[in-house]
Nucleic acid binder design. Structure first.
Lengths: 247, 247
DNA sequence: CGATGGCTTGAATCGGCTCAAAGCTTGTGG
DNA sequence: CCACAAGCTTTGAGCCGATTCAAGCCATCG
């Protein structure tokens, strides 16, 4: 548990401001989180394990993490991707025991907000409280979309959809450039996220590349033909609620 | 939009009291919801459609509903089951547009809580607010479990798991008797919930029956060998957080 | 009673899996 | 700077779980 350099919690502010306009005081309350202990977790290591008794809420400042859970015989499912600005586990706020694990996919920097401090933050401002609801409801919408992905879409569509969604989420927080973004998942991770095998993911990626839709190499992804990819995946960003403030 | 008979909102109270002990005033605030318009929706009809602009939150008083969404070519996914006491769509509370539909699986009775009234209820009591978070976080946990179901489990395990989960949820609200419960889903619904085809669901159910694990007929399900079914499904009720108050 | 919706069965097919081996990168230590 | 290990990616061949298509059955109901 290394104390970090107290980097700014910008991703959260940027995220919340997509939904509500924060007052200077609210702004400050969130910036203050940067004073809390910062963890640096190396890639492929867990932040929290299933069964742990959480006493705090984590916020990703930097890097990619995921929720995951596995079955007795080793089958593993990645349940969701956690990107900078994401709160991972309000669970810690109310529950006694984690029902899943949190793992780092790349090197991750995260702040740990103790239960009490988190409760105080929520209570301090109606707008922050609302923003937190909005954040959580959006996660729920993403989780539903994954449910459809796994339940109804073909291997092709699943991977295309995952790429569209992830790219769009990154884009919203300013982490893409020229249609390209970091992509720390290896093929086995993609397999665990899409309910396929790594071998089949490999063949599917080849086909996506052959069709000129994507480039995926050296931990980077590039969307070469976004309209075509989104059509293939039947991707509609509406469920991500990226432009809520425009009401 | 028929006005109902103002039946009691008991399922919500029972549910919340699994998590917090409500004061008489809080009790009353929730009972008061029964004064709101009650809808009676016939089986197989939608309460809310994707794209609708929600202005209220629904609570199921009676009967089974589901969230669902379909792809352009007609593939349909049931995203979750909504049972008595469940809030369907806090979405309506914050969002402009439904990203999925709400459908009745059996005859359903539901109250409609206008945005404002819902916000007032949340603001009126810290405990109710917490209970609502708990309710929402539990839904999220269920949705994650469905993600694993669809991503990693075989047809057999999927159906077994769905039965275990649903039975346990019903049990918690007193809607089972002697290992048996209502079960309004037809095989096509089971297929849409588990990401299988109706034909395969049929064959899988036969095998479950042949092994003496379940009975399923005339809109009723009976679990004949619960331990065996739970083991087969690798079902562990922990994620449903049924005994939170015992802290 | 015919129509309708749900359940069951069979046969052929296929998308994705398994197993196995080989090529490629990347990082590490000597 | 090389050598080797470890982890990732790629390829091939055979297989299997689940799908598709099609037909028949059974109950319910206007």
């Amino acid at each position: 548990m290394l104390k970090g350099d107290g980097g700014r919690v910008n991703p959260v502010i940027g995220k919340f401001e997509r939904f509500v306009r924060l007052s200077p005081a609210e702004h400050q309350a969130i910036e203050a989180l940067a004073g809390l202990p910062t963890h640096r977790v190396p890639a492929r290591q867990d932040l929290v394990r299933e069964g742990d008794r959480p006493t705090s809420v984590f916020v990703i400042l930097d890097g990619w993490a995921c929720r995951w859970k596995s079955l007795a015989d080793g089958r593993r499912q990645i349940l969701s991707l956690l990107l900078p600005g994401d709160f991972c586990d309000l669970h810690g706020f109310l529950y006694q025991e984690m029902d899943h694990s949190l793992g780092a996919l790349s090197r991750v920097r995260a702040v740990e907000i103790p239960r009490q401090a988190f409760a105080r933050l929520l209570a301090s401002s109606e707008r922050i409280n609302q923003a937190m609801w909005w954040s959580e409801l959006t996660s729920a919408a993403i989780q539903r979309e994954w449910t459809i992905n796994l339940g109804q879409r073909s291997a092709f569509e699943r991977i295309a959809h995952l790429l569209c969604e992830t790219f769009t989420r990154l884009d919203a927080i300013g982490l893409t450039r020229d249609g390209s973004c970091e992509f720390p998942l290896v093929q086995q991770d993609l397999a665990d996220a899409t309910g396929l095998t790594a071998v089949h993911v490999n063949r599917t990626l080849q086909e996506l590349r052959r069709r000129g839709l994507i480039r995926l190499a050296e931990r980077r992804a590039t969307i070469l033909d976004r309209p075509a990819l989104e059509e293939l995946a039947e991707f509609d960003a509406a469920y991500l609620y990226l432009e809520v403030r425009r009401r």
